[in-house]
Design a protein around this nucleic acid. Structure first.
Lengths: 234, 234, 234, 234
DNA sequence: TATGAATGAGTTTTCATTCAT
DNA sequence: GATGAATGAAAACTCATTCAT
């Protein structure tokens, strides 16, 4: 269950490798114990994640998921009882892990603009890594079985909390102004999440990807200066 | 086809009435010509919009749409050939109309912060009015028949263009700093759209709705100060 | 819905023809109006009756029923919503009709032994005519959805009432003794029903069928003498 | 395999305890030899008997039977090869044992009416004890694998034989008239079996159970008087 | 002997779509 | 133009049974 921790929010661009690895983390961690049962289960989960994201929950049929996982359709039901339960398990199995704490340490010594730019970058990397997961959430929220709501809201709460903590740390260091942290967190999240949505989910490659850092830096600067007015105005 | 224009981006809060009216605008506009054929067509489109948004494209079955529109299932096919075509027609029928031009005039004489706050508010009102439409787009983009992409990207382009034009106007009036307008538009859009998504689509009523103006004003201030640094720093 | 009345409880042995006709009575009555919808419905009902009786409810699959009715499987569901509902409709569609009144008239002038023998014979004929229906009831009662219970108990109540009325009539004519009519009805019913079960359902052709009348007459005599003891003893 | 003998046809009413005990008789008899293999086998047989009776052969799935017996599903197949064979084994394992001989001795000295009333009562007690077994037979006869037919017909033959023997004994003692014994056996059986079916299987508690003896006595009297006419008429 | 894992064949049911009127 | 009836294709899910250990 601890898979993907290492790769998340690490410096550097997200590589194709990471995206693929993301779906089958057990392999790396359990190399010594190739438990065939877990393997089957894991393969089904990964196949389901991929197909749910690709075709939507309803259109991704269990037969295809099973075939794609290399097992018989029944096997899927043996492991997950129903398609609905499979969705739930997929969404909790691949759910985020708390990364903010570590990240806060990483950016502790960086200058403010640098810190926020890296924060934004890592957050987006993380979303890219969890692209399928996010995709499913975006698409299925309105059909929203309660379980989804719970998981997704927990995800958002965790994020906002992380942003708030980050801002507070920067404030303590004296490099961020005094402002409504909750509101700032929502704003910062909106900017990053929207960037991700447009670039990755909608495929609107408005900016060459090489320029990503520039764009994010641009966002950060506006945000940083905007929230600094109180300090400045003093 | 131009229904809803009047109600969009007009000053004042979006009332329940408007939201409801939105789905059956033809009645009000075509009172003089109660063309029964158009009527049938319109009723199907409205029913489809509602059900697609509610249950997702795949899960909203033609039988339910037809029943909800008060016609036989076959009639739906007479009018729209296939379910796929129906989706396309729904999405273009209820698509946005260019509202920015008018809005620019409205805020022409307002002080900058006021202008942007109202812009944000109207934009969100507009999204609320088009909630079903947006919902469908969010959910079905990944399944993305080309047609959807085209329509949605046109929608976004129009929006960004509008924001850019608005910023440019405010710059000319000397009340906004010098900054990358495209980048600003993306940022501003992200903030507003994310607010809408969370409040309306995800039902995360973090802020009491009475405070909406305060929140938006908070966003706008940060954005405004942030983009003014260049001017100020001079 | 009035099918089968004419053929039930008429004098004479039950012929193969009657048994077959029983399942598609509408043809005879509605010759002038070959309503294709009713026809389809009727064909499905008949096929279902037959297959349910033959293989049991669970084992008679809807595909086979549909094929045997000459329609597509979906058509069956269009008409009956679910397999469970189909069973219910089959059981009420082919349910008994009140025949006792007419029968009482028929045997009004016959000597007592003759009257009871004919009553027993007709009752068994009737069961043979409804063999499939009874078969299903026997087999599915324990799985017993409430609906079945209701229908079957109504069937039994009607029968017992009929027997009681018959005995009372014979008493009035002075040719039956004084005895507990309810108890007598249960006994008489048990004898006849058991005969039917063994001969028809279990295929225990212990007695040559030509002797049926003899067997029944034997039963009747014992019953008749047995219930006459009170009169005799006076 | 001879379990239940002691409790069958013993004087006194059938207690709840007997009914329950009936399914797991081996425990009591084999206390000294707790053969674990037989135990497993026995547990499966009992579970199968219960579930077959409750849900019908087809609906009682091997998984449930196994779970209810506390073993793995495969184990069931190890012991019985196939579900069909399991049914056969269940039906022969729990089949009746010849009880008539003993019963004849018991009623040897009783007055005729008393003897027949007790005979009827014991027979019904016996059926109640074998309720599950009878239930299965009733329900599955029509699907009738040959094996079932054989077992059930043997059961009936044994019964009829018993009744005939009983009647003959009473005749010898001079307390029953001269009549067709086969025919009488069928009649007597029908009356008792029908009583059982209605009270126990169909749950038609028409008569308060306290009155059971009265009802049976009523039946017996009619039967007795009816069959005595020949003697009397002389 | 006992079992956890896996499966092929089949079940009921739903859906978009066509036909005939 | 509108519809009731009919359908082929596919969906989720179940079941008895086998395999490997």
């Amino acid at each position: 269950m601890l898979h993907c921790i290492h790769s998340v929010f690490l410096p550097g661009n997200v590589s194709k490798r990471l995206l693929i690895t993301c779906c089958e983390p057990a392999f790396e961690l359990n190399v010594g114990i190739p438990d065939p049962v877990q393997d089957t289960r894991e393969r089904i989960l990964s196949a389901a994640l991929k197909l749910f994201a690709e075709k939507g929950y309803v259109s991704a049929c269990t037969k295809d998921i099973a075939r794609s996982a290399g097992v018989a359709e029944v096997t899927l039901f043996r492991h997950f009882t129903s398609k609905d339960r499979l969705l739930e398990e997929v969404l909790s199995h691949f759910t985020f892990v708390s990364v903010m704490p570590q990240l806060l340490k990483e950016i502790a010594d960086l200058p403010c603009e640098e810190a926020l730019t890296i924060l934004a970058g890592r957050f987006i990397d993380y979303l890219i890594l969890r692209k399928d997961w996010v995709s499913i959430m975006q698409a299925e929220m309105q059909r929203a079985p309660d379980k989804l709501f719970t998981v997704y809201h927990a995800f958002l709460d965790e994020l906002f909390g992380g942003f708030v903590a980050c801002f507070r740390q920067l404030q303590r260091r004296g490099c961020m102004g005094d402002f409504d942290l909750e509101l700032g967190a929502r704003m910062f999240h909106g900017i990053c999440f929207n960037y991700f949505t447009q670039e990755e989910l909608l495929g609107r490659k408005n900016y060459k990807s090489a320029d990503r850092d520039l764009v994010l830096r641009g966002f950060v600067r506006i945000f940083l200066y905007g929230t600094s007015r109180n300090r400045r105005s003093e």
